[in-house]
């Protein structure tokens, strides 16, 4: 009973939040509703007994990803309204529905064949975090290490791409220094 109430409540909230995210014309509204939707998604993980995954969802998505988006939005002009592509609405909705149904078909294809068995069954008498640890560090150790290296590469790439000329601060320089930088830039453009 409580599970059903929680499921429908959070399903409604998540769908509403994500719908606002894709339809609003204000980037700030999109950001805040996306953050709220991520937290509501983690509620499903808690209902499903995947406690560790829910905690990771909150920490990674609303902690790291949203903070990164907020930092990124400081660089962009987010106050003006966002223009939209005005394509055929029916084609867009129809293609989206077809693709989504295909995703469910991919998921449910092994379910329809009745001989589906658990590959790494849940261990009795162990918490979710303990089970995740046991499977992750025995069966999925190499993918885990590869994911770690991938995150390292992404971190270096992010620093290299976004961090250019971040050691200069226009607010801390006086007028002559800023003028010198501007002159140098103009010289490069002219030459």
């Amino acid at each position: 009973m409580f599970e059903a109430v929680a499921f429908y409540l959070f399903a409604f909230l998540t769908i509403t939040m994500f719908y606002i995210t894709v339809t609003t014309s204000q980037a700030l509204y999109a950001l805040s509703t996306l953050a709220a939707g991520m937290i509501f998604i983690s509620a499903f993980f808690f209902i499903l007994g995947a406690d560790f995954l829910g905690a990771v969802q909150i920490i990674v998505y609303t902690g790291a990803v949203m903070a990164l988006y907020a930092f990124g939005m400081m660089f962009f002009d987010t106050t003006r309204e966002v223009k939209e592509k005005n394509g055929n609405k029916y084609i867009v909705v129809g293609l989206s529905a077809i693709a989504a149904v295909m995703v469910v078909a991919i998921f449910s294809a092994p379910i329809i064949s009745t001989n589906m068995q658990a590959f790494y069954p849940m261990v009795e008498g162990a918490g979710n975090t303990q089970q995740v640890g046991m499977v992750l560090f025995t069966k999925y150790l190499i993918p885990f290490e590869v994911a770690a290296i991938m995150l390292l590469v992404a971190m270096v790439a992010g620093i290299v791409l976004a961090g250019k000329k971040m050691d200069l601060s226009l607010t801390l320089m006086n007028a002559e220094e800023i003028q010198a930088i501007e002159d140098e830039k103009n010289k490069k453009v002219l030459s």
């Binding site: 998540t14 994500f18 894709v22 990124g72 966002v82 592509k85 394509g87 293609l95 989504a100 995703v103």
Partner: peptide
């Protein structure tokens, strides 16, 4: 529920122009 959320996301991918 997963289908509905995926559908919403795809609609967003198709109609958004702003990369962020």
């Amino acid at each position: 529920l997963s289908t509905i959320l995926f559908c919403i996301g795809l609609i967003g991918v198709m109609r958004r122009k702003n990369l962020l």
